[in-house]
Design a protein around this nucleic acid. Sequence first.
DNA 1: GTCTATAATTAGATAGAC
DNA 2: GTCTATCTAATTATAGAC
Lengths: 206, 206
Amino acid sequence: MGDDATAKRRGSYKSSELVRGRLIDAAIIEFATHGFEGSSTRAIARRADAHQPQINYHFESKEALWYAVMDRMMEEVDEHLDNDETEIKAMIEHLIRGLVRFAAARPELNRMMIHEASAPSQRLTWLIETHIRPRYDLFIAGWIELREAGVARDVPPELAYHLMIGAASLLHANAPEVEQLIGITPSDPATVQAHADTMVRLFLND
Amino acid sequence: MGDDATAKRRGSYKSSELVRGRLIDAAIIEFATHGFEGSSTRAIARRADAHQPQINYHFESKEALWYAVMDRMMEEVDEHLDNDETEIKAMIEHLIRGLVRFAAARPELNRMMIHEASAPSQRLTWLIETHIRPRYDLFIAGWIELREAGVARDVPPELAYHLMIGAASLLHANAPEVEQLIGITPSDPATVQAHADTMVRLFLND
DNA sequence: GTCTATAATTAGATAGAC
DNA sequence: GTCTATCTAATTATAGAC
């Protein structure tokens, strides 16, 4: 170790990971804005300051890049929603506030979700079975427990997930519309705070 | 009148309007599913049982077709939300139930809105100024009045519109996901009813 | 690993016969 | 108004020099 070959391998490896990461970052923006079909690998590469064929080098295909993007987004959700509360009401309140904060910080996930969830597809099936169902099951179990404890308002479990995510995310997913229509910046900390407070009031009993 | 030329003109006119309507119907589905850039005029024409150049004949361009689609969708919203209630609480309850019913019947509008509202564009600006702002202004004026009357729950006016639409529409915009994940059909009358009931409970005081 | 060149396919739009 | 054929430009992916 320490010879030229090792140094070169290390250097190349590091550089490769950097480009790979930049391509994922760029793809998140493009896929969220234009959808999978509407995004071009050239635009992704340009945004990542890379060349278009590097996508096929670092990933198997445009589709493989999309899967890598989703894996990354889901890691980020989990970091945002990480929860060490033990009391049940504090936990759900923490979750609701986390949902709003994440929607504001990363509107791209909700945008991508709507693009993909609009029609059945292999990508949607993979997304549901790999990433969504485990998280959904946890959420629903918690919601039912909260309903029984009288903490949650009267929202049927099979509707709760999408009502809550819809109310938490549209303001941020549609941020460009909101800014032009209403004149507020949805990602402003004060707006996020007011939004989270409102969500807690709406979905939890006093 | 009544001569061959007139008959032919009449026949052609009727046929032309029919094709034009079918192209708009088809474009609604395609634009909602794949976004503007992701939709191909060939796919739209195929779905309308027409030929691809007929789009450029009946509309100036793919973009002109998109504008015609939005005009049509907005006409449909207004029909769905048409309201002859006079009492203020009955009016907002009618509106909320109408929002849910429309989202279920025509998930395409909400899908298109998210596609377009994700990034600034000429299309988004036109959509806001032509169609959204007048309806938004009416909604907000009503919401403020309701807040003062103590009928509406404590949701700030600048958040109310997107919270309500988000909660009303995501379940239906993401219907394919919901069916696979939860196993319910969001457009089922019983589900729509339960969804509307829940929305009224969430956003209005008892 | 990068980057130029390019192959193969598909896109939106148009020409012109009917 | 319709429909075939086609133009130009853009797309994903690959070949091969470096």
